[in-house]
């Protein structure tokens, strides 16, 4: 009959081997589920918009008089899951298109633009002019390696309301 101390040591040992695998599995299934939900949520919000009020034009369309304007800015920090990062590292050995990172970056950009649209509407602006996107990497250590990669996406523009 195995004594309690022995079972404890064996338990800790198996847990220490299994925990990365468990986290990996959570990252794979949980991450895919979570990100799919985020994408569907974004699609639903995009479809609910009557028309796109964001543009990269530098001045309002001719014949329209602007009565109010202000700078609008919104940001989002998007991060790939551990599974996607692992996938990307394997893929980067062979090179080529890394689909798993494409997905999260694309989501982040669209989400940032969608938030800018919503910010403009909630502040009573008719249109956002000269929308710009900035992306920057954060969370890198001194040597430039990032264990938990994430990017900040900043969307900004000038909100205008017409007469």
């Amino acid at each position: 009959m195995p004594d309690i101390e022995y079972m404890f040591v064996v338990g800790i040992y198996t847990l220490s081997i299994l925990s990365p695998i468990i986290i990996f599995l959570i990252s794979w299934f949980g991450g895919n589920w979570h990100q799919k939900r985020l994408r569907y949520d974004l699609l639903a919000r995009e479809k609910a918009m009557p028309k796109d009020n964001v543009s990269t034009l530098r001045s309002p369309l001719p014949g329209r008089r602007v009565v109010r304007s202000d700078l609008l800015a919104i940001n989002i920090v998007a991060a790939p899951s551990h599974w996607q990062l692992f996938n990307a590292r394997i893929k980067s050995i062979f090179g080529g298109n890394i689909k798993s990172l494409d997905k999260i970056l694309d989501w982040g950009r669209q989400e940032a633009i969608q938030r800018l649209r919503e910010l403009a509407i909630s502040n009573g602006f008719d249109e956002v002019l000269n929308m710009r996107l900035e992306t920057s990497t954060i969370q890198a250590d001194q040597s430039g390696n990032s264990k938990n990669a994430s990017v900040e996406i900043l969307a900004y523009g000038t909100g205008v309301s017409y007469q």
Binding site: S27, Q35, L38, I76, A79, E152
Partner: peptide
């Protein structure tokens, strides 16, 4: 953020900080 990084998506803490 390290925990949130397991599933990916938005890191709200950093979003607020940068804002």
């Amino acid at each position: 953020a390290g925990f949130k990084n397991i599933v990916g998506g938005e890191l709200k803490g950093y979003t607020e900080l940068l804002q």
